[in-house]
Every structure is written in structure tokens, then in C-alpha cells.
């Protein structure tokens, strides 16, 4: 018996036109076409999707969670990027 396992795929589903694809989960399949077919059966049995993307998990490059602090720190110190940072006079509207 062949010991070769089918590769792992990450599944992304667009739930309706106008929305972006969202990660739904993963599954095993021999190739991309089979991954799409399996994803249809595993993740859209109740019409949860109108489009499916599959990506071999080995091809996903991820940031390191233990480096999350330094990686995202630059954004944390820049509160002025948010509208609530600014004082505006009471009574001003449409802003």
C-alpha cells in the first residue's frame, strides 16, 4: 500500500457575490481539482458558497506568532491614524 499521504489544502469560500473569500478550514486531496470537489462536499453542503479557492497548505507563508509583538508594534503607537484621535468641536455634523 502506498504510504504517500494526500497533501493538505486550505479552503477559502466566498459566501456570496460581493464578499471576499474567507478561510473555512482544510482538507486532504490528491490534487487541486479533487480538493475543490472535496471542499464542495465538506464545506458547502448547505449552500454556504458561490466560489471556492484551495491552496496547498505547504505554500502558505505565515508570520511567526512569537514575533507578533515587534511585527505589529509600529501600528500600536500611531493612534493618530484613527479618526477618534482628533478633537472636533461639539455640534459639528457630517464628520
Amino acid at each position: 500500500m502506498s504510504k504517500k499521504e494526500w497533501p493538505l489544502w486550505e479552503v477559502f469560500i466566498r459566501s456570496k457575490q460581493g464578499l471576499s473569500h474567507k478561510h473555512a478550514g482544510s482538507l486532504r486531496a490528491a490534487d487541486a481539482e479533487m480538493a475543490i470537489n472535496n471542499a464542495r462536499d465538506v464545506y458547502t453542503r448547505r449552500s454556504e458558497g458561490v466560489s471556492i479557492w484551495v491552496v496547498e497548505s505547504a505554500n502558505v507563508v505565515a508570520s511567526d506568532p512569537s514575533e507578533a509583538g515587534p511585527l505589529f508594534e509600529p501600528a500600536n503607537s500611531k493612534a493618530y491614524r484613527h479618526p477618534t484621535f482628533y478633537d472636533v468641536p461639539d455640534g459639528v455634523s457630517h464628520m
Binding site: M1, S2, K4, W6, A30, D31, M34
Partner: peptide, 16 residues
């Protein structure tokens, strides 16, 4: 089901 999984692997390899 072993032969099905093996056949799927062989088919994927051939197509690649």
C-alpha cells in the same frame, strides 16, 4: 479504499 487513494495519487502525479 486503499486502491482508490493510490489511484488518485497516480492520476495526480501523471497530470502534474
Amino acid at each position: 479504499g486503499a486502491w482508490v487513494r493510490e489511484a488518485a495519487n497516480a492520476y495526480a502525479e501523471k497530470r502534474a
